[in-house]
Design a protein around this nucleic acid. Structure first.
Length: 248
DNA sequence: CTTAATGTTCCCCA
DNA sequence: TTGGGGAACATTAA
């Protein structure tokens, strides 16, 4: 579930309740370093949720099926909890690909796509020979994009997932950058995409999945030209695209 | 029974 | 060093 828009949505929900609260206890995989300390702020770093404390940060990565919500209940998939005075945050994760850890420095990641200028994006792509989809998914190149928004952005920009990043014209890269920003912003405004597991900090689903144009829609007609949407594997990730609209 | 799933990391090879 | 391919991790749903 969790790509930049979903993580941003969770962060905004947590930011409404956690700042100022003190951690009284932790359970499961929640790091003990947080106990007795007060949350200063909640932020997003790529796909990480960060709870800031005076002497360190609690990083949470939702993996594929992680859910972080304000709830005093537990489920059979609850892997950790943060108990505060007056609130409880529960971390559920069916597939256990997610993580929670304490650190004093950031994991190495590329720039945030929403903070990047068109020129910076073009320069980034021009120095990489890889396929454009692989570049967008590479967190060390760009932090936050995942399989859903990569397919949606490439479709909107009419770029084939296997196009060489460096060989794309500056104009097409500028278009891709613009489409990426618009899609991410709209997805955040819609509360993210709920495909199977994603819910926000209150346990509510997002609404952007209703506006997906190609993700998970192989076999259906392209919403622009009617050609059957194709599916292929790129970097071992299912990729859906329009073979007519999207060119290299 | 088989396949695919919103992600990351590590290993091997060119 | 860069990049591609594949596997692994763990679980559910179709």
């Amino acid at each position: 579930m969790p790509e930049l828009p979903e993580v941003e949505t969770v962060v905004r929900g947590m930011a409404q309740v956690l700042p100022g609260l003190k951690v009284t206890a932790v359970e499961g995989i929640a790091p003990m370093e947080a106990v007795g300390k007060q949350v200063q702020s909640v932020r997003r770093y790529g796909k990480f949720i960060i709870l800031d404390f005076s002497d360190g940060m609690l990083f949470i990565h939702l993996g594929m099926t992680g859910q972080l919500m304000v709830s005093s209940d537990t489920s059979k998939f609850t892997r950790g909890r943060l108990l505060f005075e007056g609130a409880t945050v529960r971390y559920d994760d069916i597939r256990k690909f997610g993580k929670m850890f304490w650190d004093t420095h950031y994991p190495k990641r590329g720039p945030d796509p929403l903070e990047l200028t068109p020129e910076e994006f073009i320069a980034l792509a021009k120095r990489r020979k890889t396929r454009i989809k692989a570049l967008l998914l590479d967190q060390s190149a760009l932090r936050g994009m995942g399989n859903i928004y990569t397919d949606e952005a490439l479709f909107h920009a009419k770029i084939h997932p296997c196009a060489s990043a460096a060989k794309l014209s500056r104009a097409r890269l500028a278009t891709l950058h613009q489409c990426t920003r618009e899609i991410l912003r709209e997805a955040i405004a819609a509360g993210g995409s709920s495909i199977s597991d994603y819910v926000d900090a209150r346990g509510e689903k997002g609404g952007y999945q209703l506006r997906h144009q190609v993700y998970g829609k192989h076999g259906q007609p392209c919403p622009i030209c009617g050609t059957v949407l194709q599916r292929m594997l790129v970097t071992q990730r299912g990729t859906t695209f329009c073979p007519r609209c999207q060119t290299r």
